[in-house]
Design a protein around this nucleic acid. Structure first.
Lengths: 233, 233
DNA sequence: CTCGTAAATATGTTTATACATATTATGTAT
DNA sequence: ATACATAATATGTATAAACATATTTACGAG
């Protein structure tokens, strides 16, 4: 009952969410079916459907045809996070983003990278190391492999005006990606890059980006000590 | 055109997704409006709306009333991840989950925890340290604060049959949470708990769980070396 | 009693229609 | 030209109706 006198799907969703949260409807229990709720709330079934569908997508409800809708046993099983876009992330904090290409060469990828990128063996690929800085202090160090047969135009890119990621975002399309978050212990090389002590625990994001079945690029981002990724539900 | 001869919203969504991915419609460009697409695909506007709404939620499209719909400049900006439920995660790998409560006492929370939990100063809270094991090897070490005034029943819980998280999931409702992912360098105590070397980089998840404006619990999960969190889009 | 089939039922989807709302474009008065 | 009211327009939402689909229940033949 927000604006008009009509009941909106948001109204229904809020009410249902509250009933779950207050445990009027307990985990595992079946809730009334759509038609019944529609009558209770005085709205169309489609409106209830819209509301419940959203809650099911969020993992709060489990729905099955004929069986009905019930409150999930383990409520809230997924959350969303923002994919870090380095420049946006840094500028969003009011800092200035710069980057420095440390290395750019054709190189034979190690077996694990070759497997992950699903590329033939013994074919050199473009390897780029870049350091991103926020107000001049190291922010994240990236080691990137680029599939040169999928992105031939990359041969002519020097990644000075645009960082590798920015260049790729502008030049090539992609339709999927794999993300792996982990931690590693800073090696001497990484410590020097990120201006921290060797042995420090660092946050790592490995990302592999696809387009049309092909792997475009595979990158490891090693963040500065103290980096945090945040989300809420 | 999957099953029937009718066009489904999924058909429309796939087609649009493809046009974006193939850059028939380029980032920043406006796409035809719903009525136009409905005519092109031979379906109702509601069907197109459903398709485009989903893509907008995924961050692929940006929609504004009157202005229209355009392809997002930075396509794909968010991804979903599964919130780790220790037991489910371990058993999902075919391993056996056990846990050991190492410490359980009332204790005065340090200032940062007190602030995060939005509780009055100088009031002791329940503090529990638990080690979770997979097939007997340390998996994750948790340090948890529980708001005893929000969950008075916790006084009588020994967390032997149910681990703290499982107990809380069963006993109390919650409606929101904060998640922070980071990395830390293993201290001597953490190294001993997780049977790793001090100084190793470890993956950390800090989670604060709310219900009705109150903080229920705040926990730090320190994972074993090599732990990974995975997701894809 | 068992197995397979038919009926029942709750959710899922599509459609046409109507109206709401945000935002841009237009036009008019000053 | 500028400011402001007004029209135009694309998306957003609500509804009733019809049908699709998955899944369970009931039933009947053997």
């Amino acid at each position: 009952m927000s604006k008009q006198d009509r009941i909106s799907w948001q109204d229904v969703q809020n009410e249902v969410r509250q009933r779950i949260s207050q445990r009027d409807w307990k985990p595992g229990e079946y809730i009334p079916h759509e038609a019944e709720l529609a009558q209770e709330f005085g709205c169309a079934r489609a409106t209830v459907n819209r509301a419940l569908r959203g809650l099911a997508e969020a993992g709060l409800l489990e729905r099955r045809r004929r069986a009905g809708t019930r409150v999930a046993l383990n409520p809230v099983r997924r959350a969303e996070f923002a994919i870090p876009l380095i420049r946006a992330e840094i500028e969003g904090k009011g800092q200035r983003h710069t980057h420095r290409v440390c290395l750019r060469e054709m190189r034979l990828p190690p077996p694990d990278v070759q497997a992950r990128m699903q590329i033939p063996a013994q074919v050199p690929q473009l390897f780029v190391q870049t350091l991103h800085l926020a107000d001049g202090t190291p922010y994240v160090f990236e080691r990137r492999w680029i599939n040169t047969s999928a992105v031939p135009a990359v041969e002519g890119a020097d990644f000075v005006t645009y960082s590798p990621n920015e260049w790729l975002m502008r030049e090539v399309a992609f339709d999927g990606g794999d993300f792996t978050f982990s931690a590693l212990t800073a090696s001497a090389a990484e410590a020097e890059m990120l201006a921290c002590s060797p042995g420090e625990g660092l946050f790592v994001l490995d990302r592999t980006t696809h387009h049309g079945g092909q792997v475009i690029t595979s990158v490891r981002l090693v963040f500065h000590p103290g980096y945090q990724m945040h989300t809420r539900i």
